[in-house]
Computed example of a mutant assay.
Amino acid sequence: MNIESLLECLSTIGHYGHIVSTEEQIVLQNSLLILQNENHFRNVFLWGKILGADKDYYVAYGYVKDVLYGKIYYYSTNCVDWGLLPQPTKNGLLLTPLCTTRFQGDPALVIDVLIEKEETWFLEEKFKGPQLRKLKEEDRLAALVHLITKEAAVVPRGVNFQRPDGVVVENLSFEGLSALEAREISSFQHDRAATQKYNTNLLTRDDYNYAMDFLDPLDIDIPEGSWIIQIAAGETLVLLKCLFWPGLVFFHVLKTRKHGFVYIGNGKRCIDLPFMLSPFS
């Protein structure tokens, strides 16, 4: 969520179970403003908070030119001192989904991850038996942020605009979704590079627009029903909750530019979701 409306947005989603204390909100807003000025970011966003056993991780990102491909992530354990979050490593992306322990709050901590023989089918190298791998918590954090962003980061349709040169910028003419549009899951898009072919997303809409429909809509997610839409506050606010990642919520104040998502959770994915959804719903 944008730091310009950070306090208002955190207070809004606080009514729906995502609590950040008032002290944390004020310290976060001030430290993120300093982070924006020091790095000359055009905009800075609070990504979320990952709960740890000893300390929590606060994650934020900013961009200079490209709102989609130019994101630079930072993390902090005290809301004041921000460190650059490294790029996710191949080892981290493989081992992070297998971790069952909680984050401890120490970026330098190295943990042992046991890979069972049945879990080696997705690895390039094959093992004859169980393997014990090392994983640094900082790499685990980077991989987790990457996975959640890839699967659950959301923006409303039309908020981003792709220029002819491929650079993605904020759409200044975006005035928000209507109450009717907010009820359609196709009015929301993944906030990451598209995985479908360039014309797939265009062919699914009658009112397609080359500059706005370059991202994947949420209605193609599998399984169907992994997102919950809730219209609240007298049809002035829409909330989206991701069932795959409990703790992630997207909000959008209808007919305004205010929108954003925040993740507050322990970093565990609900892998049993396909078996929990009713096939008749």
Rank of each mutant, 00 (worst) to 15 (best):
E181W: 07
L203P: 02
I220W: 04
F188H: 08
K268P: 05
D54A: 10
T256K: 06
R140M: 14
K65L: 13
T200C: 09
I19E: 07
P246W: 05
S226W: 00
A53G: 01
D139H: 14
I220Q: 06
L248R: 05
E138I: 15
A108S: 13
Q36E: 04
L254N: 00
S31E: 09
E23A: 08
P97K: 12
W227T: 14
A232T: 02
I72Y: 08
L237N: 01
M276N: 08
N160Y: 13
V262E: 01
G14K: 05
T101V: 11
Q162D: 06
L239C: 04
K49Q: 06
E119A: 00
V20Q: 00
G17R: 06
V80A: 03
S178E: 06
V238R: 02
K241Q: 10
L10H: 07
Y263F: 12
S187L: 01
A60C: 10
L180G: 05
D56K: 02
K241E: 08
G92L: 12
Y263P: 09
W82I: 12
S187E: 00
E23S: 05
E184P: 04
I220M: 03
R157L: 10
C79Y: 12
Y198R: 15
V167F: 05
I228T: 13
L68A: 11
I222G: 13
F188V: 04
L32D: 03
I111C: 10
M276W: 12
S278Y: 14
Y63E: 02
L132F: 01
I271T: 13
A60P: 08
I111S: 11
V145D: 10
D106K: 10
N266K: 14
N201M: 04
D54Q: 15
N91P: 08
K134M: 07
L135V: 13
M276D: 06
L35T: 02
F45E: 03
D106H: 08
Q29K: 13
L84V: 14
W82C: 12
L46R: 02
D106I: 05
F127N: 02
T195V: 14
R157D: 04
K150P: 11
Y74P: 15
I72K: 15
K241L: 08
S173T: 11
M212P: 01
I50M: 14
I185Q: 10
F174Q: 04
T120P: 00
G52V: 09
E138A: 09
R163T: 06
P217V: 00
Y263C: 04
E119H: 03
F250S: 11
D206A: 13
D206V: 03
K90N: 15
D206K: 12
A108G: 07
V27K: 06
M276S: 09
W121Y: 14
L277T: 15
M276K: 15
Q131N: 05
T89K: 10
T236D: 05
I72C: 13
H190I: 10
P156H: 02
K258H: 05
L6Q: 01
Y198L: 15
N160E: 11
A53M: 04
G70Q: 02
E175K: 10
K258D: 09
